[in-house]
Design a protein around this nucleic acid. Structure first.
Lengths: 112, 112
DNA sequence: GTTATAATTCCATTAATGTCGAAATATTTT
DNA sequence: AAAATATTTCGACATTAATGGAATTATAAC
């Protein structure tokens, strides 16, 4: 992933409402959640939510799938994964040693 | 790290110039680089660079240390680490299984 | 086909961000 | 103390982003 694209995706995660959406959709897993469910959890106007969802879709962080009159939102986990992978790749020193302590990160994920 | 702070930090990384600064400083390691060196690598006006550095400092992504008339910029690696740790933590399902394939990430960092 | 539900698009307003030249500050050198 | 170097602050302007009410589209149910 090139820098421009990574920056664009990070910018989308860099907004508290959108990061909250991200969080909710991570918890929801592959099946995702309807727009209405997200709206209920966040308690924000539909137009505002729609705006943020559209932005996230534009950079492929998420996807929507219609089922009847309900639209389901699903995180694109491979994209999230490649974004985090890019960040980690950037966090290696020139001599091949990762600067970030990977085991700390693993602990963080283990305690969930 | 709470959501608001994580979002603020991600927003700072979410700009191509600042992500480029981040990248350069990661490569530079703990000792950091002078503002002038960064400016030379990026080829942008000093005032613009200063503005971006100030923003990154504000959210503790980096630090400056004066040595004579030269200012050294150093990434705050612990902060970066906690930010990525937070993102990973958010990427766990409710039942304790990480959704992102951690081994892929490790491969990504291993190939640096 | 009219009503209800789910969500988006449109529009206007307000606020925040990005950019960069010029002036200012801090430090060192002569 | 004047000149040189490194970097920031100021100020102005242009662009982009955020918010939410009202109107619109899409689908389903009656």
């Amino acid at each position: 992933m090139e820098l421009e694209l990574a920056a664009a995706r990070l910018a989308e995660l860099g907004h508290s409402t959108r990061l909250a959406i991200f969080r909710i959709l991570v918890k929801a897993g592959r099946q995702g959640l309807s727009v209405g469910d997200i709206q209920q959890q966040l308690d924000i106007p539909g137009s505002t939510l729609s705006h943020h969802l559209a932005r996230m879709i534009k950079v492929d962080l998420l996807q929507q799938q219609r089922e009847g009159r309900t639209l389901y939102c699903q995180l694109q986990f491979e994209v999230v994964e490649s974004l985090l992978g890019y960040l980690y790749a950037e966090c290696c020193t020139a001599d091949g040693q990762p600067l970030l302590a990977m085991h700390n990160i693993e602990l963080a994920s283990a305690k969930c």
